[in-house]
C-alpha cells in the first residue's frame, strides 16, 4: 500500500550530488512530492528531506540505493508518525480586503499565522504547518483573491533525542578504523 514516507539523507556538500540522488527516483519512476536541501548541524554535511508517496518495499530498496552513493553518509526513511515536520507558506493578499472587513484578521489569528508586511497594495501572511493546514488557509484567503502563494518543501526532525548523524559518524569512524 502506498503511503507518505520521509527520506532523510545526510551527504557531503558536493556539486552534482543532488542529481546523483534524484536519478535514483527517476529511474524507478518515483515522484518526489517535496524536497528540501540545506546545511545540517554538522559543518560540511548537507541534509536532504524528500517526501514520496510509495509502498514501503519500494522505499526500502530506493533508500538502499541512495545509501550506497559514495558521497552519501547515511540515508534512512520514516513514516509521518515517526517525525515532527512542518512546511512554511507565504500568501500575498490585497491590502484593501484587509481594510474592508475583519475576516482576514480572524483567519490569520485562528490559523496561528502572522502578518509579515503590509503595503498599500498588498499584505504578506506567513503560516507554518502541515500541507493540509497551509492549504486550508489558502482556500479561505482565496475568497479575497490571493495574489501570490508559495509553499516550501517539508522539513522534519526525528523524535530521537539526538541527531542520528553524530552517533552515526562516531560508529562510522570506528568501522573504518576496524577494517584492515
Amino acid at each position: 500500500m502506498k503511503q507518505e514516507f520521509n527520506i532523510t539523507i545526510f551527504s557531503e556538500n558536493y556539486i552534482g550530488l543532488l542529481n546523483r540522488i534524484t536519478i535514483n527516483f527517476t529511474r524507478r519512476k518515483i515522484n518526489i512530492e517535496s524536497l528540501t536541501v540545506s546545511a545540517s548541524a554538522i559543518q560540511g554535511v548537507s541534509k536532504f528531506i524528500i517526501v514520496v508517496n510509495e509502498t514501503e518495499d519500494k522505499v526500502r530498496k530506493l533508500v538502499g540505493q541512495l545509501d550506497k552513493i559514495v558521497d552519501v553518509l547515511k540515508a534512512f526513511y520514516n513514516t509521518n508518525e515517526e517525525i515532527i515536520y512542518e512546511e512554511i507558506a507565504l500568501y500575498k493578499v490585497p491590502t484593501d480586503a484587509l481594510y474592508e472587513s475583519d475576516q482576514i484578521e480572524k483567519m490569520v489569528r485562528k490559523a496561528g499565522a502572522r502578518i509579515m508586511e503590509i503595503t498599500r497594495e498588498y499584505t504578506v501572511i506567513e503560516k507554518t504547518g502541515h500541507k493540509e493546514e497551509t492549504q486550508a488557509l489558502f482556500e479561505e484567503l482565496n475568497q479575497f483573491g490571493v495574489m501570490q502563494f508559495v509553499r516550501s518543501g517539508r522539513i522534519a526532525i526525528t523524535r530521537d533525542p539526538i541527531e542520528r548523524l553524530s552517533e552515526f559518524l562516531k560508529e562510522r569512524d570506528a568501522l573504518l578504523g576496524s577494517i584492515d
Binding site: S11, E12, V70, D71, V72, L73, L169, R172, D173, L175, L176, S178, I179
Partner: peptide, 11 residues
C-alpha cells in the same frame, strides 16, 4: 585509504 561516506567492507 578511506572516505568517510563510503564503506568498502564490513565486519
Amino acid at each position: 585509504t578511506k572516505i568517510r561516506s563510503y564503506i568498502r567492507d564490513y565486519q
